[in-house]
Design a protein around this nucleic acid. Structure first.
Lengths: 162, 162
DNA sequence: TCAATATCATTTCATATGAAACAATATGCC
DNA sequence: GGCATATTGTTTCATATGAAATGATATTGA
């Protein structure tokens, strides 16, 4: 009779919180625009404007390469993204947003930010800062573990100043 | 040219941290015993000893019913769990661990706890307490949102006293 | 120059997933 | 008792997933 509570196990607790938040958010853009989580991440990444490759996206938004490839194809089929070939290196795909893609993101983004704001409103500025500090410490443990999956440069430098 | 950084977006940040931790942990028991995340959660839940149904598990470990059903079938095929029929209500499946299941859990659990300990070591007791406090506040926001997925009773009562 | 090797994106393949359909049993209501 | 409804667990079906294979282009080094 082993005494161990899953509900007090850190990895599980984090997973439950994250899955719940992600599902809640993704339901919104799935219903309104038929966008998947991967497509959402790619869409946002493309908003920066410069042309990027599949690998660039893969290196930034924590998605495996095949998933990025399929998300980009999906966005292209929906007319939200454009795929060209890089002049400098013809192995690379040059991906960018279409006008329609930019418009759709403009529709989705406010409700996503509103959802985030609802969460942030429950925390003080100090709590949020501490939360990110702690998250950073947990990341650092994995950074030191050679068997752990790497995190992207983007995710490493993201020290939002409250 | 929309200016918005995914890497500073709370839902994304949580997802990245959680995915990274979960993958790191699940790689261990996947390699050592061919156990999936769903099977791991079910296995742990069964360790409490009393016979439970699929619905019980579904209500406790944040897994959809088909996923629980398949995980239980998988554990049964591997000889780690046993499926009977409830005396009181023959719709219910009475699921319990086999001796072998208990033994396997006994092998997996130490390394899982060790992994958790590595994470916890990076935090002070106060930080951990604050982390859970903040997580609880975020959960509370979703609890008040009727469109958000519900969390289980188990996950609600889990206020581990440091 | 031109192999040998590396990198990039896609596709294949085997498996995982969840919503909805389903079969089986239980409960409520008359 | 017996019909209507509810609950439980599994299966179906359409889709999603990632590891590994593939095809295409670049780069390296002799």
């Amino acid at each position: 009779m082993i005494s161990f509570d899953l509900s007090s196990f850190l990895p599980y607790r984090l997973a439950v919180l994250s899955e719940r938040i992600s599902k809640c958010l993704s339901l919104e853009y799935a219903r309104s625009h038929g966008i998947s989580v991967a497509e959402w991440r790619v869409l946002v990444h493309l908003a920066h404007g410069r042309e990027v490759s599949v690998r660039d996206i893969h290196n930034c938004v924590n998605l495996e390469k095949p998933r990025v490839s399929r998300a980009v194809t999906g966005l292209e089929k929906a007319g939200l993204a454009r795929k060209g070939t890089s002049k400098a290196d013809s192995r690379l795909v040059a991906i960018s947003l279409t006008e329609q893609g930019r418009a759709v993101l403009g529709e989705i983004l406010p409700s996503a930010l509103e959802f985030e704001a609802k969460l942030l409103d429950a925390l003080s500025a100090q709590e949020l800062e501490r939360f990110y500090e702690i998250a950073e410490k947990l990341h650092a443990v994995l950074d030191n573990d050679p068997t752990a999956p790497r995190r992207s440069v983007m995710d490493r430098s993201a020290t939002r100043s409250a």
